[in-house]
Nucleic acid binder design. Sequence first.
DNA 1: ATGAAAGCGCTAACAC
DNA 2: GTGTTAGCGCTTTCAT
Lengths: 338, 338
Amino acid sequence: MTTARERPTLEAVARRAGVSRATVSRVVNGSTTVAEPIQEAVRQAVRELGYVPNLAARSLVTQRTDSIALVLPESATRVFSDDQFFPGIIRGVSQELEAADKQLVLMMASSTASQERIERYATGRHVDGVMFASMHGVDPLPGALARMGIPVICNGRPLGRAAASVPYVDVDHVGGVTTAVRHLLDSGRRRIATIAGPQDMVGGIDRLTGYRNALQDSGCRSIVAVGDFTRESGAQAMRQLLNDDPHLDAVFVASDLMAHGALRTLREAGRRVPDDVAVIGFDDIEIARYTDPPLSTVRQPIHEMGREMTRQLLRLAAGEEIELALILPTELIVRESS
Amino acid sequence: MTTARERPTLEAVARRAGVSRATVSRVVNGSTTVAEPIQEAVRQAVRELGYVPNLAARSLVTQRTDSIALVLPESATRVFSDDQFFPGIIRGVSQELEAADKQLVLMMASSTASQERIERYATGRHVDGVMFASMHGVDPLPGALARMGIPVICNGRPLGRAAASVPYVDVDHVGGVTTAVRHLLDSGRRRIATIAGPQDMVGGIDRLTGYRNALQDSGCRSIVAVGDFTRESGAQAMRQLLNDDPHLDAVFVASDLMAHGALRTLREAGRRVPDDVAVIGFDDIEIARYTDPPLSTVRQPIHEMGREMTRQLLRLAAGEEIELALILPTELIVRESS
DNA sequence: ATGAAAGCGCTAACAC
DNA sequence: GTGTTAGCGCTTTCAT
């Protein structure tokens, strides 16, 4: 049943239609310089034989594959958690790729083995370009691929040397956080803590930097706990902060998911939000509108970032020059608690 | 920076090492019939030139690509929701593929355009085989690919004609549900309702069949509401059931996520679980252990199903014969409420 | 053990 | 407009 039945080639179609291979190729690829009756004859032969072009052969000569990889250096468990970052990026990417009629190839890589397989896959020219998102630490792969002449773009400024050579799309973490912390200062808060994100990810690092910058000018001291962007880590970090400074009156949390966990801890500890403690998150995920009280947050355009990243990569793959960095704006969303 | 710098070919490596292309090919592919000093010379040339084999050229001659597609005919939003089915399957698939050193290519297809792109991709021999999961309605693609001689396997019995020709891996929905409903009957319940899954998916259909079968022998009448496997639809369906029969004393819910929603509705309606209404779900997702009360459920081995499906596909791709259907057992998990 | 040579199926000049 | 031809980069007999 699955005997790889002889599949018809261009040659076979050409014979059947009584034309040359070149003509069949033209028709298949939609060239207009073929007489209508011949086009029809070819199409019929294609139909009768069930001909489908062999992509390997095609890309061997065209040097294109019309597919693009999105690499997520995360475990499947993490990618499919309730962190809305991943679906946001993927939807943005899919949308642009669909418009360009390119195929998305999604690759997750947690183990070293899978990283190597991805490297082979990309350097072997299986894809026309590679996008990276949710990167951790100093990843050598983007730089390595770029050096081999493969179009590469990162979501989030890459850490390490790659930052200077691999183009990226990111949001203005520092600006957004600064605005948020200033807002807290302006509303009279003085003991402003933060729950930072993982310090091996650029989002985690930059948002902590933003917090520190904003406080520096104010004379307030910084109070820091670190989470890993999960809800549970937010709850845990909040407990630690309350322990470190029971009198804190505000907290900036580097992700809404962590902020959600932090709200739970605050409630358990009998603190009223925002009366006793003001909370501002980051991401503007759906759930932020439904927490009690609704969460003020810094909105970052994740979906737009996915789209923009894709557009940039396609330009790169088309041989155009692009900017090294494209930074999208963030926006403080203040939600009055009811 | 992204000038697709001339990439070295076998030819170049051969010249540099002073051997023939054939010898380089042998070394690169790990043939043992090459003298050690020559092997070393070749490896050095490969290193110096940064040679990477062109996969398109290779698969043109070998007729293999060493990559396998997993097609999910769902939107990204759905795939990345909190339905734990997707990560379970994907983890199982990844694990087996990794062991076989094959690359996973994940493809989501909601629109017609993306379905066509996937068809081109697979028929164009970009992958050595295709797996389908979470299928809706009668999907012609699996059968079409199989007819072209492409190894195909489905997760869940395909609906329509494909059921007879495309091999699949599924769990024993009917058996599991029957056991569950019998358990309710045995514990004295007589007004047993069900919240069914979507009736365009085999899981939804078969679980409803199981429910009907089990009731048929008992003389109890069936009370049915239909959801779409989401939590919200479960809450909604439960409201309808309570409306249809305020005196129902049990409900079998076709997924734990819907059961979670149903529990909420029951609580809101002032029904005690399990005293007033017994609830049994399906899936045994993590959250079932933490609901109030903990949820009895039918466990299906999703991760194992992903692994088994992959193993079967790899056998198929290797030219072996496989069974048309492989059905994994389900198991009733009874959780005593505290 | 190594090399020569024949393709794999397709596209793209270049002729006509 | 259509056909002829020369590869794309690799593997794999078949000689040696």
